[in-house]
Structures are given as C-alpha cells and as structure tokens.
C-alpha cells in the first residue's frame, strides 16, 4: 500500500521539486534575454486545472522565496474565487506572506489585468496566459507560427488589423491586443484589456508570462519598449469610460459594469479593488459610495 496520509506539508517548498524549478528558471532567464520570444518549457501538471493559471503558478512557484510577499488578482480583484484559491495555495505550500496591497507585494500574479498603481523596481508581475501565440487565430499551426516569428513575418497581423478597420471602422480587438516588444517580437499581452497595454511599456517591474497548457514562457524585462500595433492614420487608442468609479470617483481607470436591478440600472466601479479601497480610505467618494453595498 503506497497511499500515505500525506498533507501538503510533505511536498517541496512551493510545490514543485527543485530540478523542475531549475528547468523553469532557465526558461525564464532565456525569456528575459530575448524579450517577447516564447520559450518552450516542460510544463508540469499542477494541482489546479489547465486554464486556471497553471503557467502563472509554475512561474510564481519557481521564483518565489520565503521572504517574498505575494499578491494574486483575477479580473483586477483580490477576492475573486480563483485569486483566493491561488493565494491560499501559495500560503499553504510556500508559507509566504500574502497581501492585497499592490505596493507591498514583491510578486503579483494576475489574470486579465495590470494593477492601476504603477509598479516599481524589484516587483515582478506574473501573467497567466491561455494562448501565448499572438498569431494563433490567424494561423493555427505551431510549426507555421514559429517560422513567422523567426522571419519577423507579421504581415498577416497587419492585414487582420487593416481588415478590422475596413469592415468596422475600428480595430475590433479589445483585449489580448498584440504588441511589439523592443522592436522585434510580436507578443500577446495575455487577455488583459487593451486599456492596460500602455502600462507594459518601459515598466520598472519585471513582467513574466506563463502558459501552462501551451508550455510557453515569455518575458518583458524592466525598461523595455512595448508598442501596441497600429497604423499612422488609425493610432492605438485605449477604451475610455464616460463616468468615474461610483465608489471612489476615480477617472482614467478600468471599470466593471455592475447590473443593479432588472430595470437597466447599472453602476461602474473600479476593477482594481485594492486601488479603489485605498482611494476610499484616503477620503475619495464616488456618486454611489454612500449606499455602502460594495464598501
């Protein structure tokens, strides 16, 4: 009988065994050395399903140390179920301290958002990536897309963006909006809204991207140019919201639309919960803050 009453305490620090971490760190180092290039790595099965952030979890598990402070967000919020679950996982297997404060975190693992607060040197932002290949929906074959990257053959992407404009008058990509990194590789920023793209450019923080199912790691080192693809006559634009956050009154931030009732009542609130809470603590008030339903 090989079944033992093993608790997670019997696993290695941060779940992965050390040779696996070394393999992943090598992939990360290569990714940092070639910004925007997708490095294949021998992704492991993790104790959460593929699609739940196994790539990000593997990257975080490989770089985290006992002195780190971890923040995990999903949709910008610290308290969505999957963010709670991943944070609890690392608290359990690595016994690291966790935080919801963007400024206090040394490692921030994220799904679908970049925090509103500007990240600084020494911080690492780990993105969970479902489909790392920006050309995938134009060309389904990996053998082809790798060739296209090698030859810097990105014409197909520009044609796609052009066709968007011809048909719709807009570039109809609102999230996972392709970027060019350091003038070389076209990269998928993960399904963050294009609102967040400008934050990636010349960021002081190290940005690491992990795609578990697709077995790829890529990176944007600090102070690296990240340019959203566009045309001279159709420059890249971020989405704007007509009203400020209903709770903290913030403008120029990404908002979630919350349906209030069945008569079309809506409110817009910060997607970044930490940012919203900090602003309210500092005395900022939005139009609906007094209701207190979300405070």
């Amino acid at each position: 009988m090989t079944v033992q009453p093993t608790g997670l305490a019997d696993y290695n620090f941060a779940y992965l065994d050390e040779p696996t971490k070394r393999m992943i760190r090598r992939a990360i180092l290569k990714a940092i050395a070639i910004p925007g290039y997708q490095v294949p790595f021998a992704s492991r099965e993790m104790p959460m399903p593929y699609g739940w952030g196994t790539g990000g979890v593997q990257v975080t598990a490989s770089i985290i140390g006992p002195d780190d402070t971890l923040k995990v967000i999903d949709q910008g919020a610290d308290d969505t179920t999957n963010a709670v679950s991943i944070r609890a996982f690392f608290a359990k297997v690595a016994e690291v301290s966790t935080t919801t404060s963007t400024a206090e975190a040394t490692i921030i693992q994220t799904r679908h958002r970049i925090p509103e607060e500007t990240l600084g040197e020494g911080q690492v932002l780990v993105y969970q990536v479902p489909i790392p290949e920006p050309l995938r929906f134009l060309e389904p074959r990996e053998t082809e897309t790798r060739k296209m990257h090698a030859l810097e053959d990105y014409g197909l992407m520009h044609v796609k963006l052009y066709e968007d404009i011809a048909r719709n008058g807009h570039i109809a990509t609102t999230y996972a909006y392709p970027v060019k990194v350091e003038g070389r590789y076209v990269m998928d920023p993960s399904p963050t809204p294009k609102f967040d793209n400008p934050k990636m450019d010349q960021s002081e923080a190290l940005q690491l991207f992990g795609a578990g199912r697709e077995k790829r790691i890529y990176a944007v080192p600090p102070y690296t140019s990240v340019v959203s693809l566009d045309f001279e006559d159709y420059p890249f634009e971020v989405n704007r919201f007509d009203e400020p956050c209903a709770l903290c009154g913030a403008e120029g931030v990404y908002l979630d639309e919350v349906v209030l009732d069945d008569r079309g009542g809506r409110m817009f609130v910060c997607s970044d919960t930490d940012h919203c809470e900090k602003r309210r603590a500092a005395g900022h008030r939005g139009a609906m803050a007094s209701e207190g339903t979300l405070a």
Binding site: G51, Q75, P130, P191, R213, Y254, D256, S271
Partner: peptide, 15 residues
C-alpha cells in the same frame, strides 16, 4: 481544463 476554464470570470474582457 481549457474548455472548463470558460466558467471562470471573464468580465474584464467582456466589458
């Protein structure tokens, strides 16, 4: 995993 991950929140992108 990838089929079922569609049930995770996607409201930022949907927005």
């Amino acid at each position: 995993g990838f089929v079922e991950h569609l049930k995770l929140p996607h409201y930022v992108d949907f927005q």
